[in-house]
């Protein structure tokens, strides 16, 4: 796996302090949210905890700067607003983060199913994310819990139906 390309801001100390100047702050948060999504996609991670101090995303050892938990929370909330993150617990310590919104994922899966002619057939979630057929897709290797959420959204629209079997899930697309 190639080395992650950090943006130049990552080595700029003020980047780790929330800026009071409104425009600067907006720009700062935008870079941060992009960085979060890119980094997590790069390492293929879908959940992060605010207290995960050793995550390189949260601290840059070379300039000895780290994000404060408050700022991390702010960034995650920003991501939540754009539909790229959701808290997993009430204390908002653990978060699910995804580089595409649930709706985008849902549509992606649905389009792929239609393209490959798998409508009206049943497949397991494992097949969807780890199957040989889906290696070229964006949702290959994605977190099953996130996929489940995306599919629930599709289910609400009447495009598929989730079936639970022995603790694992299957899905039937219409």
């Amino acid at each position: 796996m190639a080395e992650f390309q950090w943006p130049w801001e990552y080595t700029f100390p003020p980047f780790f302090t929330l800026q009071p100047h409104e425009e600067t702050r907006r720009q700062q948060l935008k870079v941060w949210t992009d960085l979060f999504l890119k980094y997590l996609k790069h390492v293929n991670r879908f959940t992060i905890g605010i207290n995960d101090q050793n995550l390189p995303l949260f601290c840059n050892e070379s300039i000895n700067r780290r994000l404060s938990p408050e700022l991390i929370l702010l960034i995650l909330e920003q991501l939540q607003q754009s539909g790229h993150a959701a808290p997993l617990d009430k204390r908002r310590q653990e978060w699910q983060v995804y580089s595409y919104t649930l709706e985008e994922y849902g549509n992606m899966v649905y389009d792929w199913i239609q393209e490959t002619g798998q409508t009206n057939s049943i497949c397991t979630l494992y097949e969807l994310v780890s199957g040989e057929n889906s290696t070229q897709t964006e949702f290959h290797n994605m977190d099953e819990a996130v996929l489940l959420n995306a599919l629930r959204l599709l289910e609400e629209k009447g495009k598929c139906e989730l079936i639970e079997m022995d603790g694992s899930h299957g899905v039937k697309f219409f």
């Binding site: 003020p14 302090t17 100047h21 700067r65």
Partner: peptide
């Protein structure tokens, strides 16, 4: 200068 967006702060 910060209010005018010329400089930014670093609190550590």
């Amino acid at each position: 200068a910060e209010r005018l967006g010329k400089v930014c702060r670093d609190e550590s």
